[in-house]
Amino acid sequence: MICMRMRGVMESTLVAAAMTGAGIGSAHAGLRYNMPEGVSEISRSVYSLHMAMFWVCVAIGALVFGAMIYSIVRFRKSAGAQPANFHENTAIELIWTAIPFAILVIMTIPAAGLLIKMDDTSQSDMTIKITGYQWKWHYDYLDQDVSFFSALAQDSNAARQLGAQIDLKSVDHYLLNVDHPVVVPVGKKIRFLITSNDVIHSWWVSDLAVKKDAIPGFINEFWTRIDVPGIYRGQCAELCGRDHGFMPIVVEAKTPEDYAAWLDAQHAAKAQQTAMVNGAALAAAR
């Protein structure tokens, strides 16, 4: 929807605006200031929609602000401007009602199409159930008998305590790292079911352009298909109490082979654990 050239222009303008406006040097080379394009077809469409709307706003803004600034400069009393006395013009009022209306109708067409696509969870390859807890996530791979909790990583948790004397730069992905990431294969349509154990939470990973509320007693669903292997991070997006800011999400997207290997390792670990428990029980029985 937006060509590469415009995107480049926009990015440099935004960076320039942010930097000069802030008076802060270029210390942060990798400063993120825009929505990520993400790693799925849907997330790229969302990004395009976002940028298209942004440019529509910029264009309208240029017209309106331009007219206002022109008036402010040109029709100053101190510059000797004499006031006119017109105060209505039906034709022009109709035009500036109709044109924005038309623009909006045009904008809703791609938005509605995208919404319909995002809503279609059919023909999925696998299902993962997410359960929100105060303040961690639980993942359950349906049909795989794999499930685990995923909570804020220990080093982040230590560093985020009030008065902790820990250099945050030494912490691996401060506040955005978990003990057990949710591992998924790339190229597969993954359907997520989401619910909550206590209050409302919201599962959000911006690289996947998915955000859905976890509501106690109800089940919601959404889907994604990740194109690129990698680690994608997100956070809880609905205020859920004291540690709302401390329940991140980490999605690890692996190739199908690596994913299968990971799944096998999970099964093996589980079997070993069961054996150990049984062994202990047996020993206790003796």
């Binding site: 309208i60 309106v64 007219a67 206002m68 008036s71 402010i72 029709f75 100053r76 009393k77 401007a81 004499q82 006031p83 006119a84 017109f86 105060h87 022009i92 009022e93 500036w96 009602t97 924005p100």
Partner: peptide, 16 residues
């Protein structure tokens, strides 16, 4: 939008 346009038109050719 109509409101913003109206304010702008009020300033247009005024004596500000």
């Amino acid at each position: 939008g109509v409101k913003v346009f109206n304010w702008t038109a009020t300033m247009w050719r005024g004596s500000l």
